[in-house]
Simulated scan of single mutants.
Amino acid sequence: MIEIGSRARKLPAPPSVVWESLVEPHRRGARPWLSLLSDEIEPRVLEAEKPNRVVWSSLWPSRPNDQVHFELTAVGGETSLKFTLLTPDEAPDQSKTGHLRRRLNHLLFADLRFSYGQ
C-alpha cells in the first residue's frame, strides 16, 4: 500500500465517542458531520477495533481501492485522531492528492470537531 497522506490532530471528545462517530456517522442523536460532495460516496467500515482503530473504504468512486485508516489515542479527556490515506494502486497526481487530503482534513478536523460543540 502506498501512503497518499496522513495527519494527526486532537479532537475534544474521548476515544469511545470519536470511534462511534467514525463507525456510525449518522447514528440517532448525533450531530450531523459527514457532509459529502457530489464526487464522494458514503464510506463503508471495513474494520473496527473499539476504541482505537477504524478502517474506511474510499469516499471517492474514482479511487475505489483507497482506504482511510484511523488510529485513536486517549490524550487526557480528548482524542488524538490520526488518519492515513492508503492505496494499493498508483498514487494520484499532485492536484488530486491535495484534494483528497484537504477533504479528509475538513471532514475530520472541522466538521467532526464542530459536531462535538467546539
Rank of each mutant, 00 (worst) to 15 (best):
1 M>G: 09
1 M>A: 11
4 I>D: 00
5 G>L: 01
6 S>K: 04
7 R>M: 10
7 R>I: 08
10 K>R: 13
10 K>C: 10
11 L>D: 04
11 L>F: 05
11 L>Y: 04
11 L>N: 06
12 P>T: 00
12 P>W: 02
12 P>Q: 02
13 A>F: 05
14 P>V: 04
14 P>D: 03
14 P>A: 10
18 V>G: 06
19 W>P: 09
20 E>H: 10
22 L>R: 03
23 V>P: 08
24 E>W: 07
25 P>N: 02
25 P>Q: 01
26 H>Q: 10
27 R>V: 00
28 R>S: 01
29 G>H: 00
29 G>I: 01
33 W>A: 03
33 W>D: 06
33 W>M: 05
33 W>T: 00
35 S>D: 08
35 S>N: 09
36 L>M: 06
36 L>K: 05
37 L>M: 04
37 L>Y: 00
38 S>E: 08
38 S>M: 03
38 S>Y: 00
39 D>I: 11
39 D>M: 05
39 D>R: 09
40 E>D: 05
40 E>N: 04
41 I>D: 13
41 I>Y: 00
41 I>A: 15
42 E>M: 14
44 R>Q: 15
45 V>G: 08
45 V>L: 04
46 L>C: 08
46 L>V: 15
47 E>S: 12
47 E>P: 12
47 E>I: 15
48 A>W: 02
48 A>F: 05
50 K>M: 15
50 K>V: 15
50 K>W: 10
51 P>Y: 05
51 P>A: 12
51 P>T: 07
52 N>D: 15
52 N>P: 04
53 R>C: 11
54 V>G: 12
54 V>Y: 04
56 W>L: 02
58 S>T: 14
58 S>E: 11
59 L>N: 03
59 L>C: 06
59 L>R: 13
60 W>V: 07
60 W>P: 03
62 S>R: 14
63 R>D: 05
63 R>M: 07
64 P>Y: 12
65 N>A: 13
66 D>V: 07
67 Q>Y: 09
67 Q>S: 09
68 V>L: 11
69 H>F: 12
72 L>Q: 00
72 L>R: 01
73 T>K: 13
74 A>S: 14
75 V>T: 14
76 G>H: 12
77 G>T: 14
78 E>M: 12
78 E>D: 15
78 E>T: 11
79 T>D: 03
79 T>N: 06
80 S>G: 09
82 K>F: 01
82 K>C: 06
83 F>T: 07
83 F>V: 04
84 T>N: 02
85 L>K: 01
86 L>F: 12
87 T>I: 04
87 T>D: 10
89 D>Y: 07
89 D>H: 06
90 E>M: 13
91 A>G: 10
91 A>D: 09
91 A>Q: 11
93 D>A: 10
93 D>Q: 12
94 Q>I: 14
94 Q>K: 14
96 K>H: 13
96 K>V: 14
96 K>T: 13
97 T>Y: 08
97 T>S: 14
99 H>K: 15
99 H>R: 15
100 L>P: 00
100 L>H: 07
101 R>E: 13
102 R>I: 07
102 R>A: 13
102 R>M: 12
105 N>Q: 06
105 N>C: 03
105 N>R: 06
106 H>F: 10
106 H>P: 00
110 A>C: 06
111 D>P: 00
111 D>C: 06
112 L>E: 03
113 R>W: 08
114 F>M: 09
115 S>G: 03
115 S>T: 01
115 S>N: 03
117 G>V: 01
118 Q>A: 07
118 Q>P: 01
